[in-house]
Design a binder for these strands. Sequence first.
DNA 1: GCTTGACCTGGAGCGCGCTCCAGGTTGAAT
DNA 2: ATTCAACCTGGAGCGCGCTCCAGGTCAAGC
Lengths: 121, 121
Amino acid sequence: MRTYTPAEAARRSGFSIDTLRYYEREGILAPVARTPGGRRVYRDSDLSTLDFLRCLRDAGMPIERLRRYGELCRDPDTVAERVELLREHAAAVQQQMDQLRSWQARVEEKLAWYERQLEQS
Amino acid sequence: MRTYTPAEAARRSGFSIDTLRYYEREGILAPVARTPGGRRVYRDSDLSTLDFLRCLRDAGMPIERLRRYGELCRDPDTVAERVELLREHAAAVQQQMDQLRSWQARVEEKLAWYERQLEQS
DNA sequence: GCTTGACCTGGAGCGCGCTCCAGGTTGAAT
DNA sequence: ATTCAACCTGGAGCGCGCTCCAGGTCAAGC
C-alpha cells in the first residue's frame, strides 16, 4: 500500500494542492496522515475517495453535500443515508439532463431557422 | 404591441428586476425604451429576446458569450457568427451530457454495491 | 552543513453572476 | 395636492468554490 506526496495526489486526483487542503479543512476529506514533520501523506484509500469526490463534483454536487457525503463515509453504519444522498443527486442530474435535452431541441430549431436565412440571402 | 413594466418583464422572463438592469448595463440586452420620466418600458421583442437568453443561461452559457450573442443580434448581418456561437455551445452541452451519462452509470454501480451491503446486514 | 524546492498555516483575494443598498424620482390613485 | 409604491442610479456586497500569499518549516541532494 504505497503513499503519495501532496503533489502526486494532486496530479492523480485532478484537484489542486490548495483544493486538497481546502477539502480537508472543510471536512470533505478525512484528516490525511502526516509525516513526523507534519507533511501530508496520502494513501490509496484517500486517492480512491478523491476519485469519487471528483466524480461527484463533476456531476455538479455542491460542496455542502460533498461534505455530508464525506462525513457519512467515515461512519460505516450510514449506508442507507449515503444511498439516499446519491439518489437525490441522481434525480437532480436527471432533471438537468432533461433540461439540456430540451435546450438542444430549441437550439436546433433556431439553427435551422438561421440556416434558412443564410440560404435566402 | 403591448408593453410591460419592469416588474411584469421580470415576472414573465423569470429574471429579477436587478438582473434585467444588469443585463442591460452589460450590453447583453439592448437599451430598453423609456418613458419621458426615465422608467423602462419593455416590449414584446424584449421579452422574446429575454426568453431565449433565459434558455441560453439555463444551458450554462457564460455571461461573456451571452453578451456576444446579444451584440450579434443587434446587427442583422451576423447570422453566420450567431450560428457558429450556438454550435460551439451546443458542442459544450453535448460534452456535458456525455459526462453526466457516465456519471449516472458510475453512481448506479455504486448504488448497486451499497444495496448489496444493505441486504447482507 | 547548506541549499533548495516542496510543503506547512492562517487568512485574504478572486471571478462569476447576480443581489442589495442608499438616496433620490416618478406617476397613478386618492 | 398628497401619498406611496414602484422605479431610477451608482456602487458596494455576497455566496460559491476555490486560489493565492506571506512568512515560516522540512528534508533530499550536494
